[in-house]
Each structure stands twice: as structure tokens, then as C-alpha cells.
Amino acid sequence: MDTQSYMPVPPGVGMEENFLSLDDILLSHERLPCKTDTSFPKLGFLEKTSESHDIPENTKMEMPLWMAKGLYERKRHVISVDLPKVYREGWRTVFGADANMVDLHKMGPYYYGLGSQILHFENAENPEIAQSILQTFIGRFRRTMDSSQNAYNEDMSALLERLDCLERALFRSGQNGLNAFQLWERGRASQLTASSLVTNYRKRKITELHS
């Protein structure tokens, strides 16, 4: 319902990024293993290990996704992007065996987001990666949904800890629905309440006073 007035720009769907989405800005800060296919004069200071003035061709370095996307060109060789290990065949087999066992927060926390983004870079394994991400999601979705719909007032932190960002958002929206339903069942849906913004500001003021 229209009770929460702050509605942030949502992250993009699939391979899209939303320019103004804070989630997407943070996702694109995730690092990818890259290799330079040309030299970058005068930028040697960015590589802590090297003493040279330039970043020479064939240097292996980690780059944030935004930088890799900006420099990468299909036709010209500027950089090449390697797969992070969670998307490589070894890990894909693990995910395929039982996706529920994996701690996607530790592996991610943007496992699905970053996985969709690396499809922008040409790689022979892209179809398998796309398939693996989708299957992993499907394999885990039931459990995420079940627990978000049935755990009322329970401590779910153990499960929540192992969820990817996307799954956490889904879990939260399920919980919001459940809570709203419970309120309605107890005849409290129409109760007027203080704005959560207001109460949270007040809480913060109190903690500031005490600290």
C-alpha cells in the first residue's frame, strides 16, 4: 500500500543497469579479474606492485565492473575480462548439485546481478553461465519464498545470512506481505500509525543523547 513514502530507484532488470539506482552503482563496484591488452601510459601508479610509469600490456589486474564495461570493446583489444571463480565450471557444478547448500552472500553478495552483467563480455561459456544462474535461482526460490511466507516473528537471520541481495529483497517483500496480512487478520490493518521515518528519527536522537 502507499504507506511508505520513500521509494528508491529500483535496480535494473536482467542485463540492464539503472543509472540512478544506488543498488546498481554498488553492484558495478564489484571487481572482476581482467588483463590489459594494450598499455596504459602514465597510469603505473595505480598498480601498487609495479614501479613503472605505465601499466604495460598483459598486466593482470582487478577492475571494477563499471571500468571493465567502459573500457571493453568487442572489436579492439583494450582489456579482456576473465570469469570470477564462482561462475567458472567448477563452481557451476557445485551449484548444479545443490544450490541450497551454497552461501550466496559470501559468494556474492551480487551473485545474480554480477552474473548477468558479465554476459556483456564475450565468452564462450556465456550460455552455460546464464543457464546456471537461472537454475540456481529456481533451485533456491522455493525455500526463500516458503520461509518468507511462513516465518512470522521468527529469527530468520541464519537463513537470511546466506542469501544474495536479490533474494533478500524478495524475502523482505514476502515478509512485508505476511506482516500486513497478520495485521489485517487481527483487525489492525486500519490502525493509524506513526510514520516509520518519524519514529526512526526519534530513536536515533535518543541514542545520540545517550552516547
Partner: peptide
Amino acid sequence: ELIPTIKFRHCCLLRNQRCIAG
């Protein structure tokens, strides 16, 4: 040969602009 470096910095400029706008 300076072109990749120029492009590199331009990416950073765009990134900074996006972060601030966001």
C-alpha cells in the same frame, strides 16, 4: 598510444558523475 589512458580517465569521470547524480 595515449588514447587508452585518456579513455580510462574518461570512464572515471563518467563514473564520478553517475555516483554524484545517484
